[in-house]
Design a protein around this nucleic acid. Structure first.
Lengths: 189, 189
DNA sequence: GAAAATATGGAGATCATCTCCATTTGTCAA
DNA sequence: TTGACAAATGGAGATGATCTCCATATTTTC
């Protein structure tokens, strides 16, 4: 959503339709088999409209990702409000693995489209990083985890989990990675 | 290298030239700004020759990656031969961070090109995974690390380190991730 | 040295992307 | 409710990158 002013109703409707259809096609794993023009058709808009809202596939992916991140941040706040800090962090990380597992196609497509921009990303990634930083900081304050590793390292690990979606043993390995990281965070206590 | 039979000398020469130039352009970060036809020109071959050896940019990336992996596997063997198992594992992981740090453009370009295929990859990735598995297994035998986490989890983390190359605090975070993983591996001892 | 097989390379065919602009739609004020 | 104005639309066609075909060149083997 542009920060400036709200879109006209028809523009908002079209943008929402594009994002919804994109999420669907991403999760089905079909996005790369489609011409972008044809994706516009699928979403019920013209090519000019598609390009006006999202000049690149990556721009579209960022918008889809933004929606995912919003949900994940809500989840993080929820956990912090209801669990002790260390448990909240653990639950959040394991919840992310569940989420990626439940939306494999989506995770795969987003990881691929955004492979060239994991760091200086849109608002989305910063918000997620802040949510993870808040979870880690709360656990540090509780004395439950070490204070010499920040959220950036956890984000990097989450990125690896998300980006390695197509490994055959992905689920078990992702669970193991979360275990290693949580144990590593508790290590020097 | 095809497993079947050796290439003719001129074909081998052209293939080597393509791979060498690709590595150079990848590390310079220019690959995505080039038309593939123009890359052929830069490498000193015709478009037909480029497409004959590497039908896609991803195919070219796999060949470049294969060279990187060969070097990394050599390094792993060297470390296993000269250090105690746990130290060899630690040195290898930290060495990978050094290597990625020294070849940022290369790591970035490879990660981007191969974003859609981290798992069922070419011979290259399997060889690296075997090398890491051997390092982990040796450390388990020494009783230095837990035996309930296999090399797949370590590979996933390494993937995250490599794929998150453009984060502003990349180096410090990568070092922290290796620390977390090593501490996590030692955790329940 | 000749024959056969394989490799080459670049013009041009193919195809996906992207833009332009005539037309349509939405919003707002009177 | 209507008209003016601004913004949005969409698709034909322009643009540009990819990819293939095949005449020619080179390598290999006997």
């Amino acid at each position: 959503m542009t920060a400036d002013k709200p879109l006209r109703a028809d523009a908002q409707r079209n943008r929402d339709a594009l994002i919804a259809k994109a999420r669907e096609v991403f999760d089905a794993g079909d996005f790369f088999d489609l011409r972008f023009d044809d994706f516009a058709r699928l979403a019920g808009v013209g090519t000019g409209t598609l390009y006006r809202h999202f000049p690149t596939r990556e721009a579209l992916a960022e918008a889809v990702y933004h929606g995912e991140v919003t949900a994940l941040c809500d989840r993080a706040r929820q956990l912090r409000a209801t669990l002790p800090a260390a448990e909240a962090l653990a639950a959040f990380l394991r919840g992310m693995v569940d989420h990626i597992d439940a939306h494999k196609g989506l995770a795969r497509t987003l990881a691929t489209l955004m492979a060239d921009r994991s760091g200086d990303l849109a608002e989305g990634s910063r918000a997620l990083e802040q949510a993870v930083a808040d979870l880690v900081a709360a656990a540090v304050r509780d004395g439950a985890v070490r204070d010499d590793v920040d959220a950036g390292a956890v984000m990097m690990v989450l990125h690896g989990i998300s980006a390695a979606h197509d490994r055959p043993g992905w689920r078990a390995e992702a669970d193991d990675v979360v275990t290693l990281v949580l144990d590593g965070l508790r290590r020097p206590l």
